[in-house]
Design a protein around this nucleic acid. Structure first.
Lengths: 233, 233
DNA sequence: GACATATTAGACAAGGCTGTCCAAAAATAT
DNA sequence: ATATTTTTGGACAGCCTTGTCTAATATGTC
């Protein structure tokens, strides 16, 4: 009962009491660490932004290091969970492949790349990744590692079903993500948000290019080996 | 590169030893700011790494803010210059389009994306871009803005010459860069370097995909408008 | 209401960092 | 060799931050 909070503060969303403060500190920590960097962030700021006294922060997380670690693992888990949620909506039996891939890509962007957590995670990794690689080792294997290969499996399935023609599903998956994110990098760096219409345009162009390269009969040159590995459910 | 001192905010023309220290401080500043973030960096560290006394740092740059600004503009200019150098080697009249695009993309990666300055710039922008947008406004317009449209013009030229078939050269340019960088992001975040062989593989896959999407006779669906805008020398 | 637990505000020491001042030493130019 | 400019090391005040401690207050349970 008491360990609940210790293990993971967000499996429930408490609105009062111990757990509520704990969560609110975590969220404020994410915002502040991300905005100011590890060294630039200070506990008073986090406490103020969490609507909590400084001492409470220390009561819950011991010290700055441990708070930071908690923030990182929390954000990481949240991002991964989101990614797999979206992944579950991949169009396995598409009626209109292009349309459905576009919709899928937009979900991916909105819920995993351009949302708050995604932004936080990118900034935290960028600023502290080299200094504390152990903190992000989990993210690397559980995050992109699994998400990408899961996405690759979905593409392999589409290829097996005759919708795509591809050499290496892993490469296709990475390229898909790269294309979809192609036009988001610069705005993301400066915290600018894309309107829904713009996002649709950008995504549409990305998916069209992807499909021109990988559609069943959009080939030319390059030997394409038929995929025939174990496919997931 | 030599004009730097003249252009730069402060002051009078430096003598020889003066200029050497000045540069060494700038480079050390880049390393330390990038490694530790703006707040995390301290002047003593920079002075030590520059092989200079702390007072000398203050003599040259006044205070931390102005040193940081100088570092940013220096790195920015260096990166832009590099980018245009590489851009000048774009294959305008390719004998073997794929091979030459691969070589070009590798130059781009090695000299602009994966080199020290590129890494520094990314980290600085990521960590301080939102807080000091004015510092990077110049980079945005002079850097990606001009590089991308210059690259787009080169692609348009290839299209005009019948090598490619593309809708919008600007989009193609961004997608080209996105594909080429697709597999570099994660390693870059953790400061890992790719071997030359791996880089070649990764780049080859990217260019192959790009060309499958945009080669003259690798089409299907999607109305492709012939480009006919003003072309640069 | 009584009790236990969480939370709060504030004070506090220890330490780090910035930016300044200064006098001596070194480098450079004349 | 001498005059001028730069550099150096050290000392310093002022400020901020972390993490601890304490006594008072709030919250929730029985």
């Amino acid at each position: 009962m008491f360990f609940m909070h210790v293990i993971n503060a967000t499996d429930r969303l408490p609105t009062r009491g111990h757990a509520a403060k704990r969560l609110s500190i975590l969220e404020a920590g994410a915002r502040v660490f991300c905005r100011e960097g590890y060294t630039g962030a200070n506990i008073d700021m986090i406490a103020a932004e969490a609507g909590v006294s400084r001492q409470t922060v220390y009561n819950h997380y011991g010290d700055k290091d441990r708070l930071f670690a908690a923030v990182v693992t929390e954000i990481t888990q949240r991002c991964n969970a989101r990614s797999f949620e979206v992944l579950a909506t991949f169009p396995d039996q598409p009626a209109d492949l292009e349309d459905e891939l576009i919709a899928f890509a937009m979900r991916l962007t909105q819920k995993c790349v351009c949302d708050e957590d995604g932004k936080y995670l990118r900034k935290l990794i960028q600023s502290e990744g080299e200094r504390h690689p152990h903190l992000f080792a989990g993210w690397r294997t559980e995050g992109p590692g699994k998400v990408w290969s899961a996405l690759a499996a979905r593409f392999a399935r589409l290829a097996y079903a005759g919708h795509l023609e591809l050499d290496d599903p892993d490469v296709a998956a990475r390229q898909f993500i790269a294309l979809v994110n192609a036009e988001l990098h610069i705005p993301a760096l400066f915290g600018e948000k894309l309107e829904n219409d713009q996002l649709r345009e950008v995504t549409t162009r990305a998916v069209k290019t992807f499909l021109r390269a990988y559609r069943r009969n959009g080939k030319e040159g390059q030997e394409t080996t038929r995929v025939s590995r174990a496919l997931p459910a």
